[in-house]
Amino acid sequence: MSWFKRKDKKIQTPSEEKAKIPEGLWLKCNQCKEIIYRKEVEANMMVCPKCNYHFPISPEERLKLVFEKGRYNFLFREIKPEDPLNFVAAKKYKDQLLKLEKAGKIDEAIVIAEGKLDKFNVVVGVMDFSFLGGSMGSVVGEKLTRAIEYCVSKKRPLIVFSCSGGARMMEGALSLMQMAKVSAALGLLEKAGVPYISVLTHPTTGGVTASFAMLGDIHIAEPGALIGFAGPRVIQQTIKAELPEGFQRSEFLLEHGMVDMVIDRKDLTQTLIKLLRLLYA
C-alpha cells in the first residue's frame, strides 16, 4: 500500500502527444556508450562519430547509400513465404509471418534491387535482420538464386550485403538446401565471368556465412561485424573456455585471411566502384 492516494485519475498522456515526441532524439552508442545526438549519427551514415561503431541499418538505408541518387528498382518481390512444415514452436511460424506482413515487411529477409553504381548496372541484395534474424528460408534462397541467374544472363555484377543468423529453422531441411541452391547458382556466375562482391555486415553467421557470404570474388567486411560459422555462445558452450578478445570480428577475419578488407561505411560505395572499375570495366 502506498502512503498517498491519488484522488483524481492518474496522469495520462494522450497517445497523439506521445507519438509526437521524436523517437530517440538521442542515441546511446552500443560500443563507447556515449550519448550522441541522433541527427549527427544519421548524417554520419549511422556510424558513431566518437568511436566509429557501425549501427545496423535497414535495407532501404543501405540501398540509398549504394545507388546513385538513391534510385533503384526492386526485383523478385512477388516471391512470398509459406509454411511448408506447418511449424509450431513456442509461436506458430504462420502467425509470425502474418504479423510481419501486417507490419509492412513485404520483402521477406532479403531485398533485391537493380540500379546504377557509377557506370555499372548492378544487382544488389540486402538482407534484413529485422525479419526473423535475417534467416534464410525458401524465399531468401529463391530470390537470391533468381538474382544470380539474372546476373548470369545480363552479365551484371552482383553485390550482396549479408546480415543473418543463418538458415531458418522453421522451414527445416528446406532452408538447409537453400545453401546448396544459392552456392550452385554462384558456380554459374563464376563461369560467366561476372563479379560477385560479398559485403559482410553485423552479424553474419551460420548457413549464410557457410554459403554465399563466403563465396564472393571479393569479401568486404564492415568494421566490428560478427562473422562466423558457429555463434560465439555455441563455441563457448562446446569448448567451455573464454573466447579471445575480438574473436570472430571483421578484423579477426582479416587477420586470418577470410576477408579482403575491412571498410568503413563512408568509404564503401567508393570502394565498390573502384573494384568494379578495376575488375569489370
Partner: peptide, 8 residues
C-alpha cells in the same frame, strides 16, 4: 537443388 524450396 535448384528446384528445392516452397514459396508463393
Amino acid at each position: 537443388f535448384r528446384n528445392i524450396g516452397e514459396f508463393l
